[in-house]
């Protein structure tokens, strides 16, 4: 017995399990439950969750939304000042329509993320702390509304991190975060 290339003895199901293997099984089950529990719990107690409604939207409809938002908005130092809590961003090869935008710390914004053409990666990081980065996806045909609130002022850079064509690496935009935005 014990060979993995021979049929096992008939009573293989009844062979006892070594005590240390049993302990490991218990630890493994416990760790699996902790992994699941913490992930689930973080959706209730945590501040970082990729949760937001998605709406079907045609490219034309979304273009209209973005353009009317841009017309309504004022600008500050060349950046869009959102007229309300809503911010519209669209990926289009190879730029971010709707950026640069200037926002206030401590205020919750609803980012509407979509694309006019292909898949784009909406990846944000503050200029000075590159280890803080987040990566969300912009899909054509879908408008994803996801809330964000920045607590530190600074320049946040958006780059595309989903392959969208040969010019992919030049796709860059900016979110300017300030303590106060006075137009």
């Amino acid at each position: 017995m014990g060979s993995p290339i021979k049929p096992p003895d008939e009573d293989w199901w009844d062979v006892p399990v070594n005590r240390r293997e049993s302990i490991w099984l218990g630890l493994s089950v416990a760790w699996s439950m902790i992994l699941f529990g913490w992930m689930s719990l973080w959706t209730r107690i945590g501040d970082q969750n990729p949760i937001g409604e998605t709406y079907d939207v045609s490219t034309e409809e979304y273009q209209e939304k973005v353009e009317s938002y841009r017309e309504e908005a004022e600008t500050l130092d060349g950046s869009i000042v959102p007229p309300s809590d809503d911010i519209y961003v669209a990926g289009i090869r190879f730029q971010w329509r709707g950026l640069p935008v200037v926002v206030e710390t401590g205020k919750t914004y609803k980012f509407h993320i979509s694309s006019y053409d292909v898949q784009h990666g909406f990846s944000i990081r503050p200029e000075d702390v590159l280890s803080q980065h987040t990566n969300l996806l912009a899909l054509p045909g879908y408008e994803w509304v996801i809330e964000m609130e920045f607590d530190e002022p600074g320049t946040y850079h958006v780059i595309c991190n989903e392959f969208c064509g040969v010019g992919h690496s030049s796709m860059h935009g900016v979110i300017e975060v300030r303590d106060e935005v006075n137009v």
Binding site: S131, H133, N161, H168, H172
Partner: peptide, 26 residues
């Protein structure tokens, strides 16, 4: 993880065309 350098991309560490910003810390 520490510098947010994307995959599936030609160059971003030394140079992102059109901006001074880059991920050169990596």
């Amino acid at each position: 993880l520490l510098y947010g350098v994307p995959r599936r991309i030609h160059s971003v560490v030394r140079d992102i065309p059109g901006t001074d910003f880059s991920l050169s810390a990596a």
